[in-house]
Amino acid sequence: MDSNKIDVKKIASLAYLTIAEDELKNFEEQFSSILAYVDKLKELEISEIKETSNITQAENVFREDKETIFNNEDLLSLLPHKKNNYLEVKKILNNND
């Protein structure tokens, strides 16, 4: 089904993933077969139906405004790169930006 041919490279980049050239075809085929299957929802005329995203229908659940104190050591020890107990990441803004 051509309408289900998706641009694997584009979707991968939106999801911050890289798909190797030799895997593209396989991904494309699997996506088309899954999309062809889920396309059966298009048979249904359901414009009047309300959406369900939250099954418990709970709204505005509050809890006490009290902080939870984690052991910083535990959390910091998980960071692969840190400097003076701060998370170290790559530069985001460049001088010429």
Binding site: I6, L14, V38, L41, L44, I46, I49, E51, T52
Partner: peptide, 22 residues
């Protein structure tokens, strides 16, 4: 990512939420 992306959200995700109601 695909079913939530611009142009496909209504056709897939929103529709699925309605089917969930059914």
């Amino acid at each position: 990512t695909y079913t939530l992306s611009a142009g496909y959200y209504d056709a897939y995700y929103k529709k699925a939420l309605k089917v969930r109601t059914l």
